[in-house]
Design a protein around this nucleic acid. Sequence first.
DNA 1: ACATCCACCTGCTCGC
DNA 2: TGCGAGCAGGTGGATG
Length: 286
Amino acid sequence: MPELPEVEVVRAGLARWVVGREISSVSVRHPRAIRRFVGGPTQFEAALGGRTVRAAARRGKYLWLPLSDGQVLLAHLGMSGQLLIAPPATPDGPHLRVVLEFSGGGPDLRFVDQRTFGGLWVEPGGEPPDFLPAGLGHIARDPLDPLFEETVFISRLRRRRTEIKRALLDQTLISGVGNIYADEALWRVGLHGGRATSRLSVAQARELVGAVREVMIEALAQGGTSFDSLYVNVNGESGYFSRSLNAYGRGDLPCSRCGTPMRREAFMNRSSFSCPRCQPRPRSRI
DNA sequence: ACATCCACCTGCTCGC
DNA sequence: TGCGAGCAGGTGGATG
């Protein structure tokens, strides 16, 4: 799905519904879902059977479940992945990719993913709290992480030679931010995403991180952002933050601050939304 | 090392 | 009704 608030909603759901349970069997319905696991479906199923889930952790948009044998089950939802808690008798939907069943009955955990950009895989684990799965070494901390170092982020940001929206989407600089929350944060601080990172003052950069953090906290409190059934919590329920969006998806609608029609610009095979008046385009390029 | 771009997918909506 | 184009919340790896 999803950006940090949506992934965090899923993590919390896993903590509630899956932690403490023993995996009894695993069924891979689509091999692409585990393409990041070298062993293939048979070994994947064997790697998980009989293990108990110890916790539910997250770094940026990646999730992982430490297991009783010391390994971790990793998940990334890609653009359309869902982790759903479902009664065992639930019929297979068209995009069901992996099913995990648990000992002693109770609901299954299902990985459903229309576009198949997401996936599950298993890696060696390690000791919390500093442990980070090997595959996630390049992912920065997110701005809600207590160990996120704002001053380090700001100095790295200002040393970049790129545009601020690109930098916000760079998960090696700051994680958890995607197209929605980047646009929302930029709108809040009145900066156009095309501004040069190197020309931001420290104060502006600080304001920007503050806005990212703020919009994510607000979204989290409302269960995340969803426009349709594609982005849901583990119980299949949508969050309400789409009602609070001020920028994303609002092309031609009035800016909620000044009333000017919002503009939509093409950006990396996607769209950026901004207010032409509150967020003027920079005069100079990078 | 750093910056940029696009392939990887399915499905929906829109205009012709 | 059909069909192609364009679009969708992400990312790793190739390329410069």
